[in-house]
Simulated assay, not measured.
Amino acid sequence: MRNRFPIYVVSKGRADRMITSRTLHYLGIPHFLIVETEEAGVYRTAAAGLGANVLALDPAYKSSYELCDNLGLSKSTGPGPARNFAWDHSVASGHEWHWVMDDNIRSFRRLHLSARIKVSDGAIFRAMEDFVQRYENVAMAGPNYSFFAISDHILPFTLNTRIYSCNLIRNNSPFRWRGRYNEDTILSLDMLKGGFCTILFNAFLQEKMATQVVTGGNTDDFYAVEGTLAKSAMLARVHPDVARVSRKFNRDHHHVDYRSFRRIPLVRSETEAVVEGNDDYGMRLVLSGSDQQIAPCEIPMKPFGRGSGSMQSDAPDCISAPSPMPGCGPFAAA
């Protein structure tokens, strides 16, 4: 089973890597790749055979972009203009939602019994799409980072928090990306302050490369030159009531207090019918390279203890597993 809504990957200076495009190709998912006009030819050559339709960014999106500072086009605009281009392209194509992703996601995973298990098709995207459409006030959703899913008792999703790097966006929500830096957190807060909900899935995860590890993109444009202080300071200026600059992971970072948004309730859609029971969307747990279904208890999985820094599971790669929390997960008729 594949995704229903289009996927856009924003990339710059990484035609020799295209990590997310290769991941999506592995999952059998066609997608769009939005790149700088001057790099379009290089990307089209490099992306041949990856199922990626390369789109050159319209320069007008840079000149009209709300940068949230007074530096204009004297430095990189960041990926925000390309993200808005993806949004408008999706709307023009008649879609109600769209995905937009960073270009450094190594894999997608499903959380099962504390193991973060690699998936090999796009069923998790369809599951997330169907779930958010049950509610009329969800503006954005996406999978959590795999390195944050370390608790044995993590809930299937977290309500009303930030959505990073892999964003499923409702096209008719009255917002657009803005900010030279931290545009994902700015958009999340814009939506929450507008009274909308966001859903961060913990049952489904993205294995994203750490900030500043992959050259190109924001690493070359910003972080390698100026560090991360300007990025964090911008967020604190744009949303000073809930954001401040802090020190995390041995670098300047930001801290956001989302507690005031937790009271925004999900509002069920009257038009979306929900079938009773659990739906695993055809996913099953199998040994890598095998089409034989294996009971979860028959596979040796090493649980992730609290504080584990590992991004990989000792469990074999698989298509997926039964819902980590039957009856209350994204597949339940709740």
Rank of each mutant, 00 (worst) to 15 (best):
P6S: 14
V9D: 12
S11P: 03
R14H: 10
R14G: 09
A15V: 03
T20K: 02
R22I: 03
Y26V: 08
L27M: 13
F32I: 01
L33M: 09
I34Y: 03
V35K: 01
E36C: 07
E39M: 07
A40Q: 11
Y43D: 07
A47E: 05
G51N: 07
G51D: 09
L55E: 15
A60P: 00
A60R: 09
Y61G: 08
K62C: 13
C68N: 04
T77Q: 02
T77F: 07
P79V: 04
F85I: 06
A86I: 07
D88E: 13
V91H: 04
A92Y: 04
G94Y: 02
H98L: 10
W99E: 11
M101D: 03
R106M: 15
F108V: 10
L113N: 15
S114W: 02
S120F: 12
A123C: 08
I124V: 01
R126T: 06
M128L: 05
E129I: 06
F131N: 09
R134I: 13
V138N: 10
N144G: 02
Y145F: 13
S146N: 07
F148N: 12
A149P: 04
A149S: 09
I150D: 14
S151M: 06
S151A: 15
I154K: 01
T158K: 01
T158N: 00
T158E: 04
L159M: 03
R162Q: 05
S165Y: 14
C166S: 07
N167R: 02
L168F: 13
N171C: 13
P174C: 11
R176G: 09
W177P: 00
W177E: 07
Y181V: 13
E183A: 12
I186C: 11
S188D: 10
S188T: 12
S188N: 08
G194V: 09
C197F: 00
I199R: 00
I199E: 00
L200F: 01
A203V: 07
F204N: 04
L205C: 14
Q206V: 10
T211S: 12
T211M: 13
V213S: 13
G216I: 09
F222T: 11
V225W: 06
T228R: 02
K231Y: 13
A233E: 11
A236M: 14
R237P: 07
V238P: 12
H239F: 15
P240V: 14
V245R: 09
V245M: 09
R247W: 15
K248P: 00
K248N: 11
N250M: 13
V256A: 13
Y258V: 03
R259P: 06
F261T: 13
I264C: 10
V267T: 11
R268H: 12
T271Q: 01
D280L: 04
Y281I: 04
M283E: 14
M283P: 10
L285Q: 06
L285S: 10
L287E: 08
S290D: 02
S290L: 02
D291F: 11
I294M: 07
A295N: 04
C297G: 08
E298I: 01
P300L: 12
P303C: 07
F304V: 15
F304H: 15
G309I: 02
M311F: 01
Q312W: 02
S313D: 11
D317I: 05
I319T: 14
P322D: 01
S323A: 05
C328G: 05
A333Q: 01
A334C: 06
